[in-house]
Design a protein around this nucleic acid. Structure first.
Lengths: 120, 120
DNA sequence: CCAATATATGATCATGTGTTCATGTATTTA
DNA sequence: TAAATACATGAACACATGATCATATATTGG
């Protein structure tokens, strides 16, 4: 059954009122994309580990790499993605760049996610 | 710089105390993986839309397909993933299968995510 | 029991992701 | 200012992901 068939379906066989209501209250396409993009960034074990340790203390790139047991390059690439999603912020101090969570929302998101996986 | 170099790094040039502390408080590997797996499931626009409309009302498969404008097969495949991550639950009533969010945590996660993207 | 209907699933394919390697850039210090 | 150090980035490759198509399964009504 294709999307076109569903359109027919909507008129002939299912629950058109529910569909209309769902559509009316749906997230705007752009918001759905951006929200998904944020969750997608959270959806990698390396990045989860990075964010979790950053929720405890500010760390420099090489510390993060050592803490999660991965190469500096890999960590740097991942930090780029985390920056792009505004999940981390950073400050340079000489040669060293210190990273931390962008705001408290991020830690709450992580905590809520942990809540979910622990719940059973 | 590789992971092995980081181990050296830890001894010679960086912040070994921070690294030890970060490691000590790190999420267990299995938790990090499971948490990331959950977020990864949330990290797709189609699934975000599905979850968002399901946060408002219980819907059958074909309704969901019509509401998000995709084929039944695609929606069914996605529902399988959402079930696997315990993000949705379902009940069968004759030929129709009704889906809804597995619990309120999911809606909170979505809301927290929206909070993040709206924050700027 | 057979046809119709709602949903589920396997295969396929184009596209996306994450790590590594090599190299580039910026800052400090000797 | 040259070497060293900390970090960033581009290319490449193996692997995962998501939509579609075809088909299977399950439930109901005739």
């Amino acid at each position: 059954m294709t999307a076109i068939d569903n359109a027919v379906c909507e008129e002939t066989c299912l629950h058109p009122e529910s569909i209309r209501a769902a559509r009316a209250e749906a997230l705007p396409e752009a918001d759905a994309r951006e929200l998904a993009a944020t969750f997608k960034i959270l959806g990698d074990p390396t990045r989860v580990k990075m964010l979790q340790i950053l929720s405890r203390r500010e760390l420099c790139v090489c510390d993060i790499a050592a803490a999660v047991g991965m190469g500096q390059s890999a960590i740097s690439h991942q930090l780029r993605l985390l920056r792009g999603a505004r999940l981390v912020k950073y400050r340079r101090d000489g040669r060293v760049v210190w990273y931390s969570l962008d705001d408290e929302h991020i830690a709450i998101l992580l905590a809520q996610g942990i809540e979910h996986i622990k719940h059973r």
